[in-house]
């Protein structure tokens, strides 16, 4: 039995909202990121000074958030493609979303040490 034809609420709408919010956040970061990388054309010192802020514990936390946004947008984007191009995509959109969420959780747990490890060492000593 196909589900109801209304799309409001539930997994379909909230994944769309999350896709939108993460997309906008990533775009704004990308803009800043191209600007900071452009400093390699100014001088090695200018670039290294700005990159040093990326290594502080607070910005490390923001980087973890960036990884979270990118991984969700990437995995859910593949789900959107499956919904659009796979014949059974629309029927399995919910199952695919929960697969996306599960994969995202596993990857986010895996990213804790590599992304936040250096910040923890700086805060609590090695």
């Amino acid at each position: 039995m196909p589900a109801g034809t209304l799309y409001r609420g539930r997994e379909g709408m909230w994944s769309w909202v999350a896709h939108r919010v993460t997309g906008v956040l990533i775009f704004f970061f990308l803009f800043v990121h191209v600007l900071d990388t452009a400093l390699v054309r100014v001088s090695p010192e200018a670039y290294d000074t700005v990159v040093a802020t990326y290594k502080t514990p607070i910005v490390a936390l923001l980087e973890y958030g960036l990884v979270a946004a990118i991984l969700f947008h990437a995995l859910n984007g593949l789900r959107v493609i499956a919904v659009d191009f796979w014949v059974k995509g629309a029927r399995y959109q919910k199952q695919m979303l929960w697969t996306v969420v599960a994969l995202w959780l596993v990857l986010m747990i895996g990213a804790i040490y590599p992304v936040l490890g250096h910040a923890a060492r700086e805060l609590f000593g090695s």
């Binding site: 290594k55 980087e63 990884v67 990118i70 990437a74 984007g77 593949l78 590599p114």
Partner: peptide, 30 residues
Amino acid sequence: RLSGVVLVVLVIGHLLIQLVLDGGVSKIGF
């Protein structure tokens, strides 16, 4: 959709190199 598929590979590869492998963000510099 087409750029999305390519970006999944390019961006996740970029994140692995810059933030995960070989000391993570600490090694980045000029």
